[in-house]
């Protein structure tokens, strides 16, 4: 778990990002297993977006892995009325941004990457300092994304 002080720093970063980039309607930092760290997403349910981000991230990591493209960096989804962009933020977090259709995507990428690495530093430093809890019976299952099995095949 990330301590409260760092959560406030992450939230401040999200708010700064939203103030700086016009047409950015929401910003959310989540752990790679789908839990919200901090969010500034008016009108959108952050828990749901964080959970979906983790699901999309799982597929994305397998995609980059299966095609030999290295580790996950970012994911851009465009709907009819806007974009959803997810950026890697250190080893255990991601940054998801919600933007309107008219956004300057070049600028979204520049600011999103910068912000993602800053949030990554905050979260990674906090996790390094925090004592690791002993894995209890309800500890989360370790991610297996780094040792993917064979790709699933659709039965024909």
């Amino acid at each position: 778990m990330v301590p409260e002080a760092e959560v406030q720093d992450v939230l401040a970063e999200l708010q700064r990002l939203r103030a700086r980039v016009p047409l950015l309607s929401g910003a959310l930092a989540a752990s790679t297993d789908g839990l919200v760290l901090a969010h500034d997403t008016p009108g959108v349910e952050a828990e749901g977006v964080a959970a979906l981000t983790a699901a999309a991230l799982g597929v994305s990591i397998r995609m980059t892995d299966a095609t030999g493209r290295g580790g996950f960096r970012e994911l851009l989804v465009r709907g009819e009325t806007g974009y959803i962009a997810t950026y890697a933020a250190g080893s255990s977090a991601v940054l998801t941004l919600l933007a309107e259709d008219r956004i300057n995507v070049g600028r979204l990428h520049l600011e999103g990457r910068r912000s993602g690495s800053r949030i990554g530093e905050l979260v990674d430093a906090a996790l390094e300092r925090a004592p690791q809890p002993a894995p209890g019976p309800r500890a989360p299952v370790p991610r297996t994304a780094h040792q993917p099995g064979p790709l699933p095949h659709r039965p024909t």
Partner: peptide, 26 residues
Amino acid sequence: TSGMALGTLGGGKDFNLEVAAAGNTD
């Protein structure tokens, strides 16, 4: 419409043309 560059030439590490593309789009 997107703020992204279709192509760049020149610039360098003290002049990032990707940043310029996004900024001048605004």
